[in-house]
């Protein structure tokens, strides 16, 4: 029964990856679209893309840290 926590941490890490993947995927897709429509705005779009991706990544890593704490407890 003690190891059920490990399963929880694994599922949690998976969900975190799923959410972050969805979020960053949408950002990347939209950025691609934007760049294709307006190639001259590439630099600005890339900067904004990296910032929003980092914000999502930050939240995902919060989750990862929680999962890691559950395992390494």
């Amino acid at each position: 029964m003690e190891n059920i926590g490990l399963i929880g941490a694994g599922i949690g890490a998976g969900l975190v990856a799923l959410g972050a993947g969805l979020g960053i995927g949408r950002i990347g897709g939209s950025a691609m679209e934007g760049i294709a429509r307006q190639p001259e705005a590439t630099a600005k779009i890339q900067t904004a893309m990296i910032i929003s991706a980092a914000l999502i990544e930050g939240v995902a890593l919060f989750g990862t840290v929680v999962c890691l704490l559950a395992v390494l407890k």
Binding site: G58, L61, T64, V65
Partner: peptide, 16 residues
Amino acid sequence: FALCVRLFANMMAGHA
């Protein structure tokens, strides 16, 4: 606070 945890978690997770 978010700045702090983001940097820490990114570096630690990568090394992990």
